[in-house]
Simulated assay, not measured.
Amino acid sequence: MKKISVIVAVVVIVTTSMLTESFSQPKGGMKWKGSCGWSTSGQYGRLFDPATVETLHGEVTNVDIFIPQKGMSGGVHLTLKTDKGEIPVHLGPAWYIENQEIAIEQNDMIEVKGSRINFEGKPAIIAANVRKGDAVLTLRDEKGTPVWSGWRRK
C-alpha cells in the first residue's frame, strides 16, 4: 500500500510540474520568432531616419513578402512607380500589415510618407504612413517607432 501511495504521489508531482511548465511564459516575456528585427532597437529598425522623410505619390506595380535580414519574419514590400521612376517601399511585418483594414494592392494609386534609405546598396523607402484615397495606414510615428511595437511603450 505504501508503494502505491509513493507511485501516485510521484505521478501527481510530475504531472503538476509538466502542466505548470506548459502554461508558463519563457523567461524574459513572450518571444515571437523573427520579431526582434522589426523593432527600432534592431539593426533594420534603426535604418529609419526622420531627417530623410519625404512624401511620394504613385502607382503600386508590385506587392510581395520579403525578409529584410536573416532571422526576421516576412515583411510586406511594394514597388511604387512615381514620375521619377520606381522605388521599393518597405511597409512592415506581414503579420501586422495583413491584419489592417486597408489593403494595398497592385495598381492602387497611393501616397507614401517615409524615410529614404539605402537598402542592400539601393535606394528604398521605409514607410511611416500610406494614404489610399481617404484612408491612411499608419505604420510609424514621426521618430520612426513602429506602431506594432506600441504595446511595449507605457
Rank of each mutant, 00 (worst) to 15 (best):
M1A: 10
M1D: 06
K2E: 01
K3N: 08
S5P: 04
V6Y: 04
V6M: 04
A9G: 11
A9L: 13
V10K: 04
V11S: 15
V12T: 11
V12H: 00
I13D: 06
I13K: 04
V14F: 03
S17K: 02
S17A: 12
M18Y: 01
M18W: 00
L19G: 14
T20L: 13
F23W: 15
S24L: 11
S24K: 12
S24M: 14
S24E: 09
S24P: 07
Q25F: 07
Q25N: 05
K27N: 04
G28S: 09
G28V: 00
M30R: 15
K31G: 00
K33M: 06
S35L: 14
C36R: 08
G37Y: 14
T40C: 09
T40K: 15
L47K: 12
F48G: 08
P50Y: 12
A51G: 07
T52M: 10
V53Q: 04
E54R: 12
T55M: 00
H57G: 02
H57W: 09
E59A: 00
V60D: 12
N62C: 02
N62T: 03
N62G: 05
V63M: 08
V63P: 01
V63K: 05
V63T: 15
I65R: 14
I67H: 01
P68V: 11
P68M: 07
P68I: 11
P68G: 14
K70E: 13
S73M: 06
G74A: 10
G74H: 07
G75T: 06
H77N: 12
H77P: 03
T79P: 06
T79M: 12
L80F: 13
K81P: 03
K84D: 15
H90W: 06
G92Q: 09
A94E: 13
W95K: 07
N99R: 13
Q100S: 05
E101G: 15
E101S: 12
I102D: 02
A103C: 10
I104S: 07
E105D: 05
Q106M: 10
D108I: 03
D108N: 07
M109N: 05
M109G: 04
E111I: 13
E111C: 02
K113E: 15
G114P: 03
S115L: 00
R116E: 10
I117T: 01
K122G: 05
P123I: 12
A124S: 14
I125D: 05
I126W: 07
A128D: 10
A128V: 01
N129Q: 11
N129S: 09
V130H: 04
K132R: 11
G133F: 09
G133D: 05
D134P: 07
L137K: 05
L137H: 06
L139I: 11
R140M: 12
G144S: 02
T145K: 15
V147T: 15
W148C: 03
S149Q: 02
S149C: 07
G150S: 12
W151R: 08
R152C: 10
R153A: 14
K154Q: 04
